[in-house]
Design a protein around this nucleic acid. Structure first.
Lengths: 208, 208, 208, 208
DNA sequence: AATGAATGAGTTTTCATTCAT
DNA sequence: TATGAATGAAAACTCATTCAT
């Protein structure tokens, strides 16, 4: 009886197509990388975050490095069209900047649980981890900025530094936003947008 | 009396050796972290980069995390007074912003090895551990901003968000700067300053 | 169908190997504990007394403490049903007491290796870990005593204390018995039984 | 200034005579052995339970085995006269038995804190540890019994088994007693004494 | 004699990878 | 192809003991 039950469970798992197993591993890897970082992550960690057996991992990937590459590829494939669409829609610096921040802070706000756990990782420590997705997102942002500069939308500035500034402000303000009772993504976006469009003197007055 | 003097001399030498060993370990850790990243580094790697015995490591630190915190604290302790001085001297928004960024990027440039391990190509994860020293540095910035607002130097904006924006831009642009062959702290400071004073449209033209 | 049969056969063999490995480790641990004592024994000692690899130990047990508990549980599981049967059959105080002690000392005598490590000359410490199994055995004894009291078999005494007294005498006399060349469970049982039925003045004369 | 304070603290320690250091180490060892057992105890554990430096240990003892021997010697020296006195005073089986149990349970009751911590050692495990003192006490009890038998006070029974029975009952009932709200050493002693003088049928009725 | 940091051998534990089923 | 236990190399950590002061 018991054996039969066990066998059925096994079949259930087995009936996942190969593609599903691959996706299962990739999803687990994304989770693990975002939680403890690529360097500290072990193949065991990834397998443990999966219902699969350890040996199965090696049917799909040779190492965690290969998984990493696969995630980068997947993400790039999935994200590029959306970003391209947004980018072509922006017809001004204002639209580009405010659209980016609004989207980002709303995303953070909607997925607050995913972000918050990062802050409770180790006792007094804060971890900010660049998963393959995040890095790909950064690269995409730079490409978009370069395109915008080429199109005359932006002045001919250092796209790399500008990308860094946007990313830095986005992440740091997110953390502040997450620590507040009345999380307000619109206000956060307004603050960051004003800063990038006119500097500190253009910032909204407090409680205004 | 004589015995006391002797003992004190002994203690002096001993304490110095202790301090030197601590520095030896910290230096080795800085090297290892910057070479292979924090996540991938092991305590063994650190010990191996040292002439000391394995057990000796544990006389000074409990884990690589503790070493990391010590490095961060050292750095924060070194830069905080300089930043504070710069900001206290400032009599305009321009002086406050440009002084802060100039000091910060120059410090990062001069201590590039300590900062490089914050993010390394071989390791896709970025670890930012906020030790009490680091947090205190952030708080100092906020306090200075609040004082500047009270003094009418800055408009009455959200000091918490502004602090976050400054910190985010400083750290992210530092990383970009560190990854470049021709590290140019002055240019980095000019970029960040221009952004905070006038927004993207005030940014210096590339190669300008 | 065929595949299923094959798989089940495989599982059967695998499960058996697992069980055998577990037994191999437990046997090695019994040997090591009885030779050098529980406190002084290391996981390495246990592994070394085994043809298995070091990592294999950790597939079965987390620590030597866990091995110890497993041994205790095995023993308790083996003896509990016999004791219970003996006590349930008893129709007099004499039968209850003498049956319990006879069964216990005979069991100890037959499984002397499992019990010997409870206390060993080389180790001055005696460890008694009350796993759920062992505690359940004690509770069973108390329940049986309470039933016997309710049935008028025993006077209305403190069942908790009486249980403690029986357990204490059983374990301590076992240790003495195990340390003797001519282990004599019948004599041990006669001694304990006489004590519980008539006190020290009813004890058998030495060598009698 | 700080150095001076340190030096004074050092002098305070140094002014302990050699004998005091020896006693300090022995007391620490007794504590450690009773808490984690001789086998599991390390020299480090003993030093840690001391204000002394690690090297100092080796000025007094070569190993933990040597400490153990010293404790046994000390205890034997201190306890023998008292036991001899008690033994010579007892002029009947009743006096011997009831005196022993009364003394023991009162001792346990008065030192409940020392005994209770044994039960909270490891989560669900109970440890009973024979320190040198305890073992010496057992041996003394056996000698006393043998003397009593020789004097015709006790019948000619197996003194080793009788000692084991007394010890087992004393310890197990102590545990039960310690777990009760209304700890009553007199009642515990009465129970054990009645058992040893007349068997289960002579036990006091519950609540009587 | 007292100190306590250094040592490195030894123990504990984890991990990537293999392989029989 | 999936499974998951076995493996043993390597990492993490502890310890008894020494020795310069």
């Amino acid at each position: 009886m018991e054996a039969v039950i066990k066998r059925d469970a096994a079949r259930g798992r087995r009936e996942q197509t190969k593609l599903q197993n691959r996706e299962t591993i990739l999803a687990a890897a994304r989770k693990v990388f975002s939680e403890i970082g690529f360097g500290a992550a072990t193949v065991r960690d990834i397998i443990r975050a999966t219902p699969l057996a350890s040996g199965t991992f090696y049917n799909y990937f040779k190492s965690k490095e290969e998984v990493y590459q696969a995630i980068r590829d997947d993400v790039a494939l999935a994200i590029r069209p959306r970003l391209r669409e947004e980018r072509t829609r922006a017809d001004s610096v204002e639209a580009f900047i405010s659209g980016s921040f609004r989207t980002f802070f709303e995303f953070v706000s909607r997925n607050r649980e995913d972000f918050r756990h990062l802050r409770h990782a180790a006792d007094a420590s804060r971890l900010r981890i660049d998963t393959p997705e995040v890095i790909a997102g950064f690269e995409e942002l730079r490409e978009d900025l370069e395109t915008a500069i080429a199109n005359g939308l932006f002045p001919d500035v250092d796209a790399d530094f500008l990308m860094a500034a946007i990313v830095g402000v986005a992440f740091e303000i997110s953390e502040r936003m997450l620590s507040r009772e009345d999380m307000d993504p619109a206000a956060s976006a307004a603050f960051a947008t004003a800063l990038f469009l006119g500097g500190v003197r253009a910032l909204p007055k407090k409680g205004g």
